[in-house]
Design a protein around this nucleic acid. Structure first.
Lengths: 137, 137, 137, 137
DNA sequence: GTGGTCTAGACCACA
DNA sequence: GTGGTCTAGACCACT
């Protein structure tokens, strides 16, 4: 379910953040669903609990989850409030990626296919693989 | 022209790499155009020459520029060779960004518009100002 | 174990890269084996840590090792993916070396012996001492 | 005839040395043949005469050519004298390259083919393309 | 004057 | 303690 890449140059906690975001975004983790506890998840992934802790804290800051003392962490799913800044950021990122893709020879059709594909995946409630930091490989 | 964010979590040299890539991709820097020398750019940005060096070296490895010892650094623009790995990476990135955008409420139409816009910008030989600098710095 | 030639025209970090490559290729360093930490190796060789860092980074780019921030650097040994470019380069190098060897009077038989010898060494998990250090230093 | 790669990380003068070595080794340039004068070659290749000068000096040191004041530079082709050191160096290089090739998946048969190919090329008096410094690509 | 290497020493992020 | 980034400043090689 988590498939961390210990070898990636991207820090583990960041991989966790990204993965959980994806799961939330794709509705695999539903609103108010309880996330596994730090210790349990740490043991499951055989990873230092501090690392999990850090990931959860980050997700809370970004508004994707909320924590209740003594209870655990839960999916938020509200968002949409002041997401304008977020949207702007994502769009800028997209522009960069799109122009790079075009530069590398990817066709417009392929890009559009990518959109519809992703859209379908979302409605079918599925998470997809991801990795790749901003580094070269 | 470069707008570095010294406080960003993203390393300076990486910001430089990204920015220069953009300039090359958008044809603002043309093939075989000479880049500012390491020392000059370092002074201009009041940054240590080694940092510029590192950025230039990275760009060279990635195939965006080439450097000649006694002469300077120049834009490459050839590419198109075996960029399959690069393409795969960009596509994965795109998928992530697209799903996040959709999650944040951006419509499919808007995304497609983004593609055509970017395409036009490219052929018109124009650079844009996005940077997406500090990630929640 | 490393025998650096500080006076050589070949940069120290490059000597390191070459040497470590050899050790990995010849299975002296096994898959997922931990390399000496940057600082430790630096002290051992009485060399600046940055230089080691540079070598390790280069090896990571070339896919021979991977580095994890809080943990260390480890041997990769996967490869075999899209090394076609690498292969082409090595073959060109080989052609050059072969013609030079022939010119210097080395017989074809001797060259073929060299191949079988090297092949045996590899399967027997042994490292050799060649370095070809200073090029007419 | 010379096909220098101004973009290569390998210095021009070194490319020249290598190329001329090849031409001599492959008998394209015969014993006592006169090399083009520094100025002429410099103009032909639109390169700084100092660079040519440096290449010729290097070749003289290595024993591939000899210079006669006021006359020019000529191919030597004697060698074979104390080439034992040279041979040892080349063999070491070869071993390294062979083990790397094997590591990258090149078969023994292919390597042997490379030898016979190169041998044929030599007797047919032909020079081949080369480049590739010890850097990655 | 250009890129490239190296040192010494500081500081940060990750586990 | 680990890798990674950055600075300041020196020195070398190439054109």
């Amino acid at each position: 379910m988590f498939e961390l890449d210990l070898r990636s140059r991207k820090p583990i906690y960041e991989q966790l953040v990204d993965r959980l975001k994806q799961l939330i975004i794709n509705n695999v983790l539903e609103k108010d669903e309880k996330l596994p506890s730090v210790r349990v998840l740490a043991q499951q992934l055989s990873i230092n609990p501090n690392t999990i802790q850090k990931a959860y804290r980050e997700l809370e800051i970004q508004g994707y989850i909320y924590s209740v003392k003594g209870k655990g962490s839960f999916v938020n799913h509200i968002m949409m409030a002041d997401s304008s800044a977020e949207i702007k950021k994502v769009k800028e990122q997209l522009k960069k990626n799109i122009s790079e893709a075009l530069f590398l020879g990817v066709s417009v059709e392929e890009l559009e296919k990518l959109i519809t594909e992703t859209e379908v995946d979302r409605s079918v409630t599925r998470g997809d693989e991801d990795d790749s930091s901003s580094e070269r490989g």
